[in-house]
């Protein structure tokens, strides 16, 4: 073990002095262990490849800048860099979640129809038709305000101008229209939910 560490230290020193072949030896010597470590965390070959590359880019830049402190711990140092980059990877993914597609790509995992399906659409149409029939039971003045507000999407100011009553009266008629509508629904035990 000490022999290997000494060799690493020698190779690092040699690399810093300009011997590019030393880096090749270091990478070949430790690539399996570092790559396996990264893969064991991310379980994705492409991601592992990227992190392995980023790890050694960092190693190369640090060594060339002369900022590496040789303590005979080259491999633990590289593993620490890889570990930090794995953490960065998961942090980044947490902020920007991706769609996972292991194996066959399924377009419906990224696309969905937000509209109602045929069955729900039929139920919705039935409920709306029932409500239209129910509101006919309301007194004329309340019915008029409710239709203008709900079906014609008019404001209470517009309703008051059209019907010639105050806004407060229009609001009151709307309130009583809803109260009476609920009473009719309860009286007939109707279920008007989708």
């Amino acid at each position: 073990m000490e022999h290997t560490e000494a060799n690493d230290a020698f190779l690092v020193k040699s690399y810093i002095e300009g011997n590019e072949n030393s880096l090749s030896i270091l990478i070949n010597r430790h690539q399996h262990r570092i790559y396996s470590f990264i893969f064991s965390k991310v379980f994705d070959k492409d991601v592992a490849e990227d992190i392995f590359q980023d790890t050694f880019i960092k190693v190369i830049r640090t060594l060339k800048r002369g900022k590496y402190n040789e303590e005979g711990k080259f491999l633990p140092w590289v593993m620490r860099i890889a570990h930090n980059l794995v953490i960065d990877h998961f942090r980044k993914n947490k902020r920007m979640p991706k769609f996972e597609n292991s194996g066959d790509f399924n377009i419906f995992s990224v696309l969905c129809d937000s509209g109602l399906n045929a069955e729900k659409q039929i139920i919705k149409d039935q409920i709306e038709a029932d409500v239209k029939e129910l509101i006919k039971e309301l007194p004329e003045d309340q019915l008029e305000v409710l239709v203008m507000r709900i079906y014609k999407d008019m404001s209470f100011k517009e309703i008051s101008e059209r019907t010639g009553v105050s806004i407060n009266t229009a609001l009151g008629r709307m309130r009583y229209a809803l109260i009476n509508l609920r009473k009719v629904i309860e009286k007939h035990n109707l279920v008007l939910t989708n």
């Binding site: 590019e20 880096l23 090749s24 990478i27 070949n28 690539q31 399996h32 790559y35 396996s36 893969f39 064991s40 592992a48 490849e49 392995f52 590359q53 050694f56 880019i57 190369i60 060339k64």
Partner: peptide, 19 residues
């Protein structure tokens, strides 16, 4: 696990990057 290793292209890229 021991057999797992990065692609040769990746290693070559790193060596060229270093050079």
């Amino acid at each position: 696990l021991k057999q797992m290793s990065p692609k040769k292209e990746t290693v070559n890229f790193l060596l060229n990057y270093s050079k």
